[in-house]
C-alpha cells in the first residue's frame, strides 16, 4: 500500500517536471539562444580584432591591454558610471522607501496612488520620456525659463553644462523609483503590527520606531534592492544616449553607451566585447563584496543570529 502510493507520487512528480520544462521552454530557448550563446561567443570575440565585416583575428589580450593602458575615454566612461551609480542608488532607494511608507497607510484611493507612482518606472526608460526631459532641461526649456525668471541667468542650460548634465541624468534615474517602491511596500506590509504596538506602548517616538524597527526589519529588502539597483545603475544607457548623447564633452558618457559606440559606430566589435567583460567583472566584484558584508548588517528574522 505504502509502496504503491509513493510510486504514484513519483509518477506525479515526473509528470510535473515535464510540464514544468515544457512551460519553461520558451524562456529556456530564449535564454540559451539569445543570452547564453552570445555571451560565450562574446568571450571569444573579446580576444580578437573584429569589426563585424572582417574575419575575426585572434590577438590575445591586446584589447584588454588597450583598455587599461591607452584608452582615456574608457576611464572617463567608468568615472561617469561610478558617479552615476554612487548618487543614484542611495537617492533612489531613499526616495522609494519614503514613498512606500507614505503609501503604507490606510487612505482612500491608495491603489490609484500606487499605480501613479509606478508609472515613471514603466515609461521612464523610454525614448519618448527621454526626449521630454531633454526639452525640459535643455537650452530654451522650462527649467531655464524658470531660473531666469528668478534672476539666475546662466550661459549654459543644465544639460549643456559639463558640471550639471550628469545631475539631470541622475535625477531622471531617481524618478524611476517605482519597482523599488513596490518591493519596499510589500516588505513593509510583512512587518508584524505587534512590534509597532509594543513599541508605542513603551512610549517610543516615531523616528526611533523607524530606525529601531522598520529599518532592521527591512534590511533583507534593502539588500535586495541595493544589489538590483547597483546592477541597474551600471547599465545606464537610454538616458545618456537620448538626452545628451554622452555630451557635453563626455560628461555623461556612460559605460554602456561607450561600449555601444565602440561596437556600432566605430565597428570595433572585439574591443567592445572586451569592454563588456570588464563591466561584468566590475559588477560581479561589487555584488560579491556586498554579499560578504551581508552578515554585518542584514537582519533575517528566521536566521536567528541574535
Amino acid at each position: 500500500m505504502k509502496g504503491k502510493q509513493s510510486l504514484a507520487k513519483s509518477e506525479y512528480k515526473r509528470k510535473d517536471n515535464i510540464a514544468g520544462y515544457v512551460m519553461l521552454s520558451p524562456w529556456l530557448f530564449g535564454f540559451v539562444l539569445m543570452w547564453f550563446l552570445p555571451m560565450v561567443i562574446s568571450i571569444y570575440y573579446s580576444f580578437t580584432d573584429f569589426n563585424l565585416l572582417n574575419e575575426a583575428k585572434i590577438i590575445g589580450f591586446k584589447n584588454y591591454i588597450r583598455i587599461f593602458t591607452v584608452d582615456d575615454t574608457f576611464r572617463q566612461a567608468l568615472k561617469v558610471t561610478f558617479v552615476y551609480a554612487i548618487f543614484l542608488v542611495p537617492l533612489r532607494l531613499a526616495f522609494a522607501l519614503f514613498v512606500a511608507m507614505l503609501l503604507n497607510t490606510k487612505h482612500k484611493g491608495l491603489g490609484l496612488y500606487r499605480t501613479i507612482y509606478y508609472i515613471p518606472s514603466i515609461i521612464g526608460g523610454s525614448i519618448a520620456v527621454s526626449i521630454v526631459w531633454r526639452q525640459i532641461f535643455g537650452n530654451q526649456g522650462v527649467i531655464m525659463s524658470l531660473l531666469s525668471a528668478f534672476g539666475i541667468v546662466q550661459k549654459h542650460s543644465l544639460l549643456g553644462n559639463t558640471k550639471t548634465a550628469l545631475a539631470v541624468i541622475i535625477l531622471m534615474g531617481v524618478w524611476q523609483f517605482g519597482s523599488s517602491m513596490l518591493i519596499f511596500l510589500a516588505a513593509l506590509k510583512q512587518i508584524p503590527g505587534s512590534l509597532y504596538e509594543s513599541a508605542r506602548v513603551d512610549g517610543a517616538k516615531s523616528w526611533r520606531i523607524f530606525f529601531k524597527i522598520t529599518i532592521p526589519m527591512l534590511t533583507p529588502t534593502i539588500f535586495f534592492n541595493l544589489i538590483l539597483q547597483i546592477v541597474n545603475g551600471f547599465r545606464v544607457f537610454t538616458e545618456s544616449y537620448v538626452i545628451t548623447d554622452g555630451g557635453p564633452l563626455d560628461s555623461t558618457l556612460s559605460y554602456v553607451l561607450y561600449l555601444y559606440r565602440r561596437a556600432f559606430n566605430y565597428f570595433d566589435m572585439g574591443y567592445s566585447c572586451a569592454l563588456a567583460w570588464v563591466l561584468v567583472v566590475i559588477i560581479a566584484v561589487f555584488t560579491i563584496v556586498l554579499f560578504r558584508t551581508q552578515n554585518n548588517w542584514v537582519h533575517y528574522e528566521s536566521g536567528g543570529d541574535d
Binding site: 552570445p38 570575440y45 538590483l228 546592477v231 551600471f234 566589435m269 563588456a276 559588477i283
Partner: peptide
C-alpha cells in the same frame, strides 16, 4: 539578476541573430 544581465550583454552579439 540573470534577467538584467541579459540586457547588458545583449548589445554585444545581437547582430548575429
Amino acid at each position: 539578476l540573470a534577467g538584467t544581465m541579459v540586457f547588458s550583454m545583449a548589445a554585444c552579439s545581437s547582430g548575429k541573430s
